[in-house]
Amino acid sequence: MSEQVEFRNVSFRYQEDAPRVLKDVDFSIDRGEWVAIIGHNGSGKSTIAKLMNGLLFAESGEVRVSGEVIGEENVWDVRKQVGMVFQNPDNQFVGTTVRDDVAFGMENRGIPREDMLRKVPESLKAVQMEAYEEHEPHRLSGGQKQRVAIAGVLAVAPDYMILDEATAMLDPKGRQEILETVRNVQQESDLTLITITHDLNEIVAADRVIVMNEGEVWFEGTPREVFSHKEALSRIGLDVPFVAKLTEELRSQGVHVKEEPLNHEEMVEELWNLRSKM
């Protein structure tokens, strides 16, 4: 029973006469795994996220979380397990101060006050927003809002965390820091992490990648496997990391790069090994 999120032949459309945005989608995600879901805009990624915590229900097929099919009767229990951060945190703020906002999710789950008093500053510190406890969420910058929204989810320590483009407004450094924070939490607490993203660093860091295209699962594999399909990815509107592009250029010039380097360090090692053979 290690499969924690399961999509079994899931189809979905927003209106009866509209085309299907998900077609027969089938995959599973294990406990403690970090899976990145990528794909062009409109490929169905966010719909998948919304099906995972019962904001939407499948038209056909089954969505299971922790073994249970999500339906009207258990949706509130599912939402307690699945923490979700959207791209635009404005739609998610409820509190008048950052502190209230972070506390809101815990309050809803009936977490005792003494725990809340401890966890609010802890979570804000994790996203480097501890200096903003008294601030009004609406006055923060886009990136700061995203940090607070993530703190709100960290505070409730869910079993599953879905980040839907949740760091898109952060600068690259901030994004990296938040990812490290989330990854540490994931490894310490057996959190299952699902990130929906276009950020190449985020994709490279994941354990596994699901590539969506026009509502279908187009490919599933490790980041290395995914990025070895540069041509095909670019046909469906996606990009590959700088080192993957450089690898291809080197190969087209007759340099025999053996592995598929994924980051700078691996690429530099390849060059080091190739050096005497050039």
Partner: peptide, 20 residues
């Protein structure tokens, strides 16, 4: 361009014993 960069890399790294 990336193609030119790859060329720069190969020619710089190739300077050396030059077998093959």
């Amino acid at each position: 361009s990336l193609a030119e960069l790859a060329k720069d890399l190969t020619s710089e790294l190739g300077r050396g014993d030059g077998h093959e």
